[in-house]
Every structure is written in C-alpha cells, then in structure tokens.
Design a protein around this nucleic acid. Structure first.
Lengths: 139, 139
DNA sequence: CTACGCCCTGGAGCAAGGTCCAGAGTCAAG
DNA sequence: CTTGACTCTGGACCTTGCTCCAGGGCGTAG
C-alpha cells in the first residue's frame, strides 16, 4: 500500500494522532478511505492538506478560516474563489501594515534608548507607562 | 471628578465592563482608586493603558505578553528593558516576514487566475487542493 | 498462539480570553 | 424618598484548539 495509517500521517506532518482526529471532527481533513476494521487510510493529498493546515495556522489563520479556504476548492465558481482569495489578501495586507507600525515604533524607541542610566530617560518606559502609549500607533 | 467609573471607562475603550474586571483579575489594569463603596475609579492613564492593551491584542500579542511588556515600565533596569524590546522587535519582524510570504503567494495565485472558465484552470484551486499546496510557502 | 504496537470511539480535561448571571449595595435625578 | 441606572462579588459557562484517558479491537512477527 502507498497509503498511510493515522500514526504515520501524523508523524510526517509533525502533529499528534489526536490532532488529526480532531481536524476530522472539525471538518478539515477526511481520510481517503477506511478499512473494514474502521482504520483510517490517508494518501499524499491528505498529507499535503494537513501540512497546509499547519502552515496556515502558524500564520494566524483560525481553523474556521482555513476551513473556508479549503472549502473553496470544492466550489465550481471560479469567480467566487478569486474574490475570496482577494479578500484574504486584503486581510493579510492589513495585518502586515499594522505589524509594520509596531515594528517602526519599537525600532524608534530602541534607538532612542541609551540602554543605561536613569529610567526616567528611557523612551521605552515612557511610551509604555505614560499618558500616550504610542508604541502601537495612534487609534 | 475627572475620574471614570468602570462603565464609562469600558465604553470609551470599546470593551465590556466584565472585560475590564477580567483584566484586573489578570493583573493587567488596576483602578486608580476605589470609593468607600468599593466602586472602581479610573483616570486618563488607565484609559490609555486599556487602549494599549486592546491594540496590542489585535496585533496578536497574548495577554501574558502584554503583561510582560507593561511590567517593564516598573523595572529600574534600563538595559533589561531595552533587551526585552529588542526581543519583541525580532519577534514582530519574523511575523511580518511570514505574512509577506503568504501575501506574495496569494498575490501570485490571484494574478494567475483568469476569474472565469474551467475550475481545473484555476491556480488557486490547484494550490489549495493539489499535491503541493505552495500557497503558504514551502516548509 | 502470544505479544506488542497500532488503531477505534466517546468523553473528560485544559488554557486562554472572555461573557453572563444572581443577589445585593450605591448614586443621582426628580 | 423613590426610581432606574450602575456597581459590587463570586462563580458558572462558552469557544477554540487541542490533549489525554479508558476500554476495547486489529495485525504481524516470532
């Protein structure tokens, strides 16, 4: 057989067996087939899908969002798929922009901080404790 | 008085009263003072801090991380504060880089998708369902 | 046949981050 | 003083994303 049991699949994707079953319950990943015994069998497509799920997760997509993304692959409406992808893109771009503002704020503070001396001279502490914590950008 | 009750504070920060109390329990935000009745009173600094917490959260910082960030403002060791900020900066930069890879992958797929016609021609669907879902970058 | 390691289902438990009572006290306007 | 809006505490409950049993079957090497 070139199919995998749940344990082998889990090992190859770096997740636990329970997690695979949890994803199945959550409608994210169904086995390719079952043996008469009820044992799940997975193929290469399932392994790829599982790895996709994990990568998406580490980037901050919730399981629900991932389910939505994956559901698109069953849609026959190409235009809708494209629109959904564009929406996701806008989403990602907003997150990037927000994080860049954080980064710039942090970088400025770090540069302005002497790294020694009187705490009241440290701009980082001022930004964190003060009246206007601009660290994360206005509003 | 120019102090706020918990309800007014919550309204101005766009959170629920229960959330403010939850943050207090979690060691994130203490009232400026209490009335004899036990009522909490907050000043401008507390409102700023609450808004800071919310902004940090929307950018993916956990309450624990935020607590760490805020705790720095009480530290007298400027060098340590600076190192902590640098660590957080590296963190943020990694997240940005990861998201940029997602963005680039998505953008490429969207550009390659005609937006109509045969679903089997749509690269987005291929990337999602196929053998090598490169959408989120390799490994 | 006996082990030993997988696999099954169902359900409990956990951490984070809230959210929502119940029952009782407080405050401010009229 | 009465009313209605607020606030208090304590604890239960919810969602997400797992993680870990218990109490069984399966499967293959020796």
């Amino acid at each position: 057989m070139d199919t995998l049991g749940i344990g082998a699949l889990a090992r190859r994707a770096g997740v636990r067996v329970d997690t695979v079953r949890y994803y199945e319950r959550s409608g994210l990943l169904a086995p390719k087939m079952r043996l008469q015994s009820g044992y799940r069998r997975y193929g290469a497509a399932e392994l790829a899908r599982l790895r996709f799920i994990r990568r998406a997760q580490t980037l901050g997509f919730s399981l629900k969002e991932i389910r939505d993304l994956l559901a698109l692959s069953k849609g026959r409406d190409v235009a809708r798929v494209k629109r959904a992808a564009q929406g996701k893109l806008a989403d990602v771009e907003q997150r990037i922009a927000a994080l860049q503002r954080v980064r710039d704020g942090l970088a400025m503070l770090i540069e302005a901080c002497p790294g020694h001396g009187d705490p009241t001279d440290c701009p980082i502490l001022k930004a964190l404790g003060g009246e206007e914590p601009q660290l994360l950008g206005a509003a």
